Simulated scan of single mutants.
Amino acid sequence: MTGKETMTSRERVVKALSFEEPDRVPIDLGGFQTGIHKRAYEDLLAYFGWQEELEILDPVQQLVKPSEAVLTRFHVDTRYIVAHAPQGFQGRIEQHERDGKLWRDLKDEFGVVWSMPEDQQLYMDISRHPLADATLDDIRDYPFPNGSDPTRFTGVREQAIEMRNNTPYALSTGIFGVVYEVCWYMRGLERWFIDMMENPTFCEALLDQTLKYWLDYTAGFMQAVGDLVDVVMIGDDLTGQKGPLFSPKFYRQVVKPRQKKLVQHLKSLTNAKVWYHTCGACTAYIPDLLDNGIDILNPIQISAKDMEPERLKREFGKQLVFWGGGIDTQHVLPFARPEEIRQHVKRNLEIFKPGGGYVFNNVHNIQYGVPAQNTVALFDAAYEYGFYKE
């Protein structure tokens, strides 16, 4: 038996983000870091017996934009407002043959090429790092994209106004502000890690370029929607399963000041809460993120080291909103039975939901191979056990 809803989705999310208890825990699905893979979505449609034309939200991760029918079925309280590529940028997936095999290739605005084999189509990996052999002078001469190009935001405000005035949902931007990760996309991960030790001046120069892009982008995007959205999403993966991916000293001396500048810039442009994504065991960085001005942490990878829900809620639950952490997506969601899924969700909700400050979703994306019945059990349990009062 579920409780009774007494709030709109927007009211529910806003209350939860203010560390107050709404009627039930808000539910999220459909973002770039909280989405569903196209094949998992196809399995879900087959389970429901529904026919839909798929809309790809993110070709790199092969994420689908869930339909209103699916979002409504799962009681999802969030909807997304995203900018688009600037006028003149092609951004098309092209098919090429290499070594006797067909590939789908996509070049992004920074010149990074993402590829996946035609016979797989699960996700894209980087196949070309445009700054792999670059020098400091090459960074100065590189044609970085123009974050302030106003054509990125054509029609975005009108869409946001329509959703704000005519739907009950909380509005969030898609993710942007990827200051750190874009650098290794362009340089190559191994080369970038060497640079951090041997050539930090190169790293700082490249970080300054990506920061400039995102500061310019943010100014234009927030001018369009900053007064209309409830959540602004940014992120960079800083940690892996067991802890930081690179030197915490380098993070705090070089990366963090630039992230903080972006967050404070955002806060000067909007009253929306700032949401930050990093996978992995990030507990040691939470004080840094709070110092930067972050309001919300995602995806809360509860299977990583020192990411136990009890600890996170106890140590940071009054300062930081947790957005995610609904289930162990590595060991439980793909392999457990639906009833086990339900009990896992129930336990995590009992830990995270007291006092508000919690939004439910799967930890990161629902991947291909997750049984449709498990996805259904996940969101049905989130709804059933998410009410604060019977």
Rank of each mutant, 00 (worst) to 15 (best):
Y180E: 11
A281T: 00
P86I: 11
I126W: 10
Q61K: 06
R104D: 10
D133C: 06
I126E: 08
P334C: 15
M196P: 04
T34R: 15
E52P: 02
E94D: 06
V82F: 11
E11Q: 15
D328C: 09
T278D: 04
A134L: 03
S18P: 03
W50L: 06
T72C: 07
G155P: 03
I296L: 13
V64E: 02
A205C: 02
W184P: 04
F352H: 00
Y80F: 15
C282M: 11
L122K: 10
I366K: 15
Y285W: 14
N271R: 03
T210K: 01
Q319G: 05
F193W: 15
I234A: 09
H96Q: 12
I56F: 02
G369D: 15
A40P: 02
Y383I: 06
D141V: 10
E94G: 08
V263L: 10
T2G: 05
Q90F: 08
P26N: 12
F352W: 09
I194F: 15
A224T: 08
L71A: 01
M307D: 03
T270Q: 00
Q209N: 01
M163R: 14
G91F: 12
E204I: 05
E340I: 05
N165R: 15
L349M: 11
G147P: 02
D216M: 04
Q121W: 13
R191K: 11
R342W: 02
S127V: 12
Q330A: 10
T78Q: 13
K346W: 04
T167C: 11
G326W: 04
N365S: 05
K273Q: 01
V70C: 00
T278V: 04
V113A: 00
Q301I: 04
F246P: 01
G240N: 00
D380G: 01
Q61R: 00
M197S: 07
N361H: 12
V112P: 03
E162D: 14
D28R: 00
Q120V: 13
Y251R: 08
L297V: 01
T270P: 01
M186F: 13
P59C: 12
D43L: 03
T210I: 07
Y368C: 09
R140Y: 10
R79Y: 06
A219T: 12
P299G: 07
Y41E: 00
W103S: 01
P334K: 15
F322S: 09
F153Q: 02
F19H: 06
Q209V: 00
N374W: 13
E315V: 05
R39N: 13
I126C: 10
T278C: 12
A219S: 11
Q51C: 02
A85M: 11
G324Q: 12
K249Y: 14
P168N: 10
P22F: 09
A219L: 14
S247C: 07
Y388E: 01
T167I: 11
Y169N: 02
V156Y: 00
L290Q: 07
G240L: 08
V263K: 04
V225T: 10
R164I: 03
